[in-house]
Design a protein around this nucleic acid. Structure first.
Lengths: 341, 341
DNA sequence: AGCCGACCTTGGAACGTTTCACAACGGCCC
DNA sequence: GGGCCGTTGTGAAACGTTCCAAGGTCGGCT
């Protein structure tokens, strides 16, 4: 009735369970004929190893997980692809867990993963100061924070978001913009806060008027559209002439809605996004964006995680920080937008 | 040294292990004072339940997995979001596994998941006839095939891809196109084959000349760009005037490259995509696409999986098929493309 | 006083593996 | 014929839970 176990296989093949185990794990110790008999029994009964028992006894899971901020943001799936590549090379399976920008859900995943005794966890946290992260590390599950900097007691791989925000805002200032909006939120998400800080710092340096902040509830396309509506609703005299969005999802939504409501991009509204996801270049007006080395981010994070998992003693936590790069496209360039190339 | 177990907690609190277990699973059976003592011990030692042992004893994992064709295709993450919603409602965690359009990788995930004894598996298979799927079901792990139809011995939730292909091609024929290209591949992926079949059937019905098939190695943006290059390289006299792409990733790549190489869309080349991902509407030229009820697909699949997992006996496999819907946008509409609204 | 039930706690079996010390066997050499 | 060796196979312990039958204590009822 229930799934056959090694005991059943052993009985069926007329050997001891230990022998079945050997066939599976150390076939060279088993005589040809016996091995064959056991393998036939396995096939016949449809025996499938019970990983729980295995892990319970062996103590290792050959699995790692990446808890993502939001799987629907292509940026993260690109990072994940990089990480997966490394995991695969090391013979580990990687599970993706969608935190959905929800702290509760993310916390549930962390608890579950720790209970499952995964080899390690990659995470882009909603809240980088979640005490759970420290607790995990203390209790022995290696953790690497991805796309956020971390303190000295944790590994992290990130891109300088303050610099990114600065780059974006400086670019807009250079193009002559003075009334600039920031679209993004919630601020509790570290990336959002940093990018905003960077932009503010650039404006302050230039002595420009402060940012108009349009705070969003999430970082998705729908929220971007909503922001577009709000901007388009303002009288032209008070409307910002440029918007810097905390990510490309927002920027694409904003762009779409702004165009729909009659604003010309970049004439009436210049737009800078963040992440330079693949779709940014293919947008209605190709999007200027702050690019991050996505796959490299994932690969590096996974490598660091593996290093820590393999040699926990004497491991020294590293905080790698990469530099973002501004990619300028039509959404901010003042070339004429009618008369397509 | 190693992670503390219930035994350690019990010793520390001066009770039996059974009591610790009760505190965790049936707190109402334990006296207030004892409960407190045990909880303190748990906190002090940093005890974390070992899920493997738990599962070994209890036989259930409270976990399900969705093995996706490619996490970088937003279509699938949308489907996943729908499924996750249902799983969460049922108190199950869902892991996402990225098959990366690679049969080997997908097979590895399936093996692992079966060994982990997950409650059930949602899968968008690279190869719908993989004998592994039948084996899984036979051995007791419920499987629901997502975005592919399946035979009567399996549950599936899909959208009629032949119809979708037909819709797309008919739309192009109606607009007067006669030389039409199909961009997509590899054909071993069922969705690709079906959409092509649908298109061919529409052309045959109209007595039009057969499709020019540009076969791609993958279903991503880069391959779309490559196809754009090939199309743009053809002399105008022989170049198709419209292209139907097997998905939106290809379509967006194709669109981007075609425009870059000087083709006007839809004037010189009309484009229809498939999936109607969120980014399709925000594209350089908003993309006509065949929409599928993504979230509904995911929700339905998860519901069917749960139903089967809960009541395996007498379960009757269902094959739900939804209807796709054509969403017409500028990439095929013959309104002038210069003079933006 | 004796008994009962309510309430709480205990101890051990069972889950399916892996590992390891050891037994069985045959052959070979002295 | 005894000692040894190498090759195969065995059986039981251990991993950390959950579940359950049974035991203990206490207060109240007859």
């Amino acid at each position: 009735m229930s799934a056959p176990s090694m005991k059943d296989v052993a009985a069926h093949a007329g050997v001891a369970v230990g022998t079945v185990s050997n066939v599976l794990n150390h076939p060279e110790l088993v005589a040809e004929s016996t091995r064959k008999r056991v393998q036939d029994a396995i096939a016949e009964l449809g025996f499938v190893r019970n990983e729980s028992a295995r892990q319970l006894r062996g103590g290792t899971s050959r699995t790692l997980a990446y808890v993502v901020l939001d799987t629907r943001n292509p940026f993260f799936t690109d990072v994940a692809a990089g990480a997966q590549q490394v995991a695969e090379g090391a013979g580990l399976a990687m599970f993706l867990c969608d935190g959905g920008e929800d702290p509760t859900r993310q916390a549930r995943y962390l608890d579950l993963l720790e209970q499952q005794r995964v080899e390690g966890i990659l995470i882009t946290p909603v809240d980088a100061d979640d005490p759970r992260l420290a607790a995990l590390a203390r209790r022995g599950t290696p953790v690497v924070v991805v796309d956020r900097g971390a303190g000295p007691d944790r590994c992290s791989v990130s891109v300088d978001d303050v610099l990114g925000g600065d780059l974006a805002a400086s670019h807009l200032l250079d193009a002559g913009h003075r009334r600039i909006a920031f679209v993004g939120g919630p601020r509790s998400i570290g990336q959002v806060a940093d990018r905003l800080t960077g932009a503010e710092q650039a404006l302050a340096r230039a002595g420009a008027e402060p940012l108009t902040v349009l705070e969003t509830a999430r970082l998705d396309v729908a929220e971007g559209r909503r922001a577009g509506e709000r901007l388009a609703g303002l009288p032209a005299s008070r409307r910002p002439t440029a918007a810097f969005c905390a990510n490309d999802m927002l920027a694409l939504g904003l762009l779409q809605q702004a165009v729909r409501l009659g604003l010309r991009v970049p004439h009436d509204l210049a737009i800078v996004g963040y992440d330079d996801i693949e779709f940014a270049a293919a947008a209605a007006v190709p999007l200027t964006s702050v690019a991050q080395p996505r796959q490299l981010l994932g690969r590096t994070a996974a490598e660091m995680l593996l290093a820590e998992a393999r040699h926990p003693k004497g491991h020294v936590h590293q905080q790698r920080v990469f530099e973002p790069e501004l990619v300028v496209r039509e959404s901010t360039s003042m070339r004429r937008l009618d008369g397509v190339a």
